[in-house]
Simulated assay, not measured.
Amino acid sequence: MPKPKPAPPAAAVEILREPAEVKYAEELAWLRSIDDGPRPSSWASSPRMVRIFILGSSPSDKLDREVRPKFFGDPSTIERAIVTLASDRGLLLIGDPGTGKSWLAELLAAAICGNSTHVVQGTAGTTEDHIKYSWNVAMVIAAGQSRDSIIPSPIMTAMQGGLMGRFEELTRCSSDVQDALISILSEKYTTIPELKGDNVVFARPGFNIIATANARDRGVNELSSALKRRFNFVQVPVVTNKKTEKEIVLFRTRELLARNRFEVEVPPALLDILLQTFADLREVSAAENSEESRLESALSTAEQIGVLEDAVLHGQFFGEGELAPGMLARSLVGTLARRIPEDVSILNKFWHAQVSKRAKKDNAGWRAFEAAGKQALEHLK
Rank of each mutant, 00 (worst) to 15 (best):
20 A>V: 12
310 D>R: 06
376 A>K: 00
202 F>L: 07
266 V>A: 04
363 N>A: 15
9 P>A: 14
111 A>Q: 08
48 R>T: 07
59 P>M: 00
113 C>E: 12
88 D>T: 14
175 S>C: 07
204 R>Y: 01
316 Q>Y: 01
348 N>A: 15
22 V>A: 13
247 E>G: 05
1 M>D: 07
284 V>K: 13
61 D>P: 02
85 L>D: 05
340 I>C: 02
216 R>Y: 01
32 R>F: 04
342 E>R: 14
6 P>R: 11
188 K>I: 08
151 I>S: 06
284 V>Y: 08
142 A>E: 15
321 G>Y: 10
138 A>D: 10
182 I>E: 13
188 K>F: 07
77 T>L: 12
98 G>N: 13
219 G>N: 08
151 I>E: 05
294 R>P: 03
322 E>R: 12
96 D>K: 10
48 R>F: 01
194 E>P: 03
66 E>G: 01
45 S>C: 14
381 K>Q: 15
346 I>V: 06
163 L>D: 09
320 E>S: 11
372 A>P: 00
346 I>T: 02
254 R>I: 05
248 I>A: 04
63 L>C: 05
161 G>C: 07
260 N>Q: 12
294 R>M: 06
246 K>V: 03
284 V>F: 08
354 Q>M: 11
81 A>E: 08
290 S>L: 09
229 R>I: 06
282 R>M: 01
255 E>W: 02
166 R>A: 03
169 E>K: 02
225 S>R: 13
289 N>L: 13
355 V>P: 00
85 L>F: 02
288 E>L: 00
130 H>G: 00
197 G>R: 09
82 I>F: 00
109 A>L: 13
229 R>F: 06
49 M>Y: 06
368 A>S: 14
259 R>A: 11
207 F>Q: 10
6 P>I: 13
43 W>M: 03
313 L>A: 00
135 W>A: 01
128 E>P: 00
